[in-house]
Simulated assay, not measured.
Amino acid sequence: MHANRRQTLAMLTGLGVGHAWAQAGYPNKPVRVVIGFPAGTTGDVVMRILAPLLGDVMGQAVIVENRPGAGSSIAAEAIARARPDGYTLLLSTTANVINPSLYPGLSFDFLRDLTPVTMLGEAPALLVGHPSLNAKSLTELVALAKTRPDSMSFASSGNGTFTHLYGELFNQTQGVRLTHIPYKGSSQALTDLLAGRVSLLFSPASTVMAHVKAGTLKAFGLIGRQRLAALPDVPSFAEVGIADFESALWFGLNAPAGTPADIVERLGKDLATVLARPDVRAQLTAQSFNTLPGGVAPFADLLSKETGKWSRIVKAANIKPD
């Protein structure tokens, strides 16, 4: 009897069934999602909307843990070193594919040591300017900047942040020379833009939405794949023929490399179930967050392309972190 049982198990394992049996109990304890930024930031708000609903679908609690520092590299390294069993995940974002170029001494390789699970969506960004700028559209703004080399500026929330890199991308792709003015955070950058001390700012849409609606800032273009319902008249960069600005501040889930494929698939499907709910989409839209198609393959493709793109921008502009 024991021999027959061993023979049957060996046969099933050879067919790949034994592995499926080994994971059949997943999840049998809480799943933890680590965020590399403080509470209240975009990713944190989004994940705290999704976590309890994902927990309902999975049948286990989904716990959100903030572990900020080093532009999310501390959190990413922790996940890269975690057990690849599907119980410890990273809420990844644009910073995770920028950091390898800024910090070449990182002790882990984001693309190698973390496996993509699925995309969640993106927080579109806006290029906004002071109302005194003599331009009504993105095309006019580019033309104006070309006539005023080195005399127009853009603010950022610090060297190496995505608000800085988008400005450098704009310079490199449009043949303009906007002067970079870095700040220690977005609050003072926005204050100086409103006061007219700087000309432009690339910013998450949610941060500047109220000022655009009030007319105290002018929105020239949207970074993202679709227009914002709250600002339907603001076109995307792609719509006016400017490439390389399709990807805004995106968010996804990554697991440690080596996490079994069936667990990765289960996580992706359960998240897709949550994101398909109309009430969830409504909550995320209220946060200026657009959901995107999920799945391992499209997310892996995005990570590869984004890593290459930002590496080229960082090298061309010789960007050094603060």
Results as ranks from 00 to 15, higher is better:
1 M>Y: 14
4 N>R: 12
5 R>C: 13
5 R>P: 06
7 Q>H: 15
7 Q>G: 11
8 T>W: 14
15 L>V: 08
15 L>R: 15
18 G>A: 12
18 G>L: 09
21 W>A: 15
21 W>M: 14
24 A>R: 07
24 A>V: 07
25 G>R: 06
30 P>H: 03
37 F>D: 15
41 T>M: 15
41 T>P: 10
42 T>S: 15
43 G>P: 02
52 P>D: 07
52 P>C: 12
54 L>W: 08
54 L>V: 04
54 L>T: 03
67 R>M: 14
69 G>D: 12
70 A>E: 15
74 I>H: 08
74 I>W: 02
74 I>C: 03
79 I>N: 01
85 D>G: 10
87 Y>P: 02
87 Y>C: 05
90 L>F: 10
91 L>E: 08
92 S>K: 05
99 N>F: 12
101 S>I: 10
102 L>T: 09
103 Y>Q: 12
105 G>F: 06
107 S>Q: 09
110 F>W: 07
114 L>F: 11
118 T>Q: 03
118 T>Y: 08
123 A>R: 14
123 A>S: 15
124 P>N: 03
125 A>F: 14
129 G>D: 03
130 H>V: 00
132 S>E: 09
133 L>G: 04
137 S>D: 13
139 T>I: 13
139 T>Q: 08
143 A>P: 04
145 A>D: 09
146 K>R: 15
146 K>H: 12
147 T>F: 00
150 D>C: 08
150 D>A: 12
150 D>E: 13
154 F>G: 00
157 S>Y: 11
157 S>Q: 13
158 G>P: 06
167 G>K: 00
167 G>L: 02
167 G>C: 01
169 L>K: 08
170 F>D: 02
174 Q>P: 08
175 G>F: 10
178 L>E: 02
183 Y>L: 02
183 Y>M: 03
183 Y>Q: 01
186 S>M: 12
186 S>E: 07
190 L>A: 12
190 L>E: 10
193 L>A: 11
196 G>Q: 11
197 R>Y: 05
204 P>R: 06
206 S>C: 06
209 M>W: 06
216 T>M: 05
216 T>D: 08
216 T>H: 09
216 T>Q: 10
218 K>N: 13
224 G>A: 11
224 G>P: 08
224 G>N: 10
230 A>H: 03
233 D>H: 12
233 D>P: 00
234 V>G: 03
235 P>N: 10
236 S>F: 00
237 F>A: 05
239 E>A: 15
240 V>P: 04
242 I>A: 03
242 I>C: 00
244 D>F: 06
247 S>K: 14
250 W>D: 11
252 G>L: 06
258 G>V: 02
259 T>W: 04
263 I>F: 13
265 E>G: 11
268 G>C: 05
269 K>W: 11
271 L>H: 01
275 L>H: 05
275 L>G: 06
276 A>N: 10
282 A>I: 00
282 A>P: 01
284 L>P: 06
284 L>W: 09
284 L>F: 09
285 T>Q: 13
288 S>L: 15
294 G>L: 01
295 G>Q: 04
297 A>K: 11
299 F>R: 06
301 D>Q: 13
302 L>V: 02
302 L>E: 12
306 E>S: 14
307 T>K: 11
312 R>V: 05
314 V>G: 05
314 V>Q: 02
316 A>C: 00
317 A>H: 00
317 A>S: 03
320 K>L: 14
320 K>Y: 11
321 P>M: 10
321 P>R: 14
321 P>N: 11
322 D>M: 04
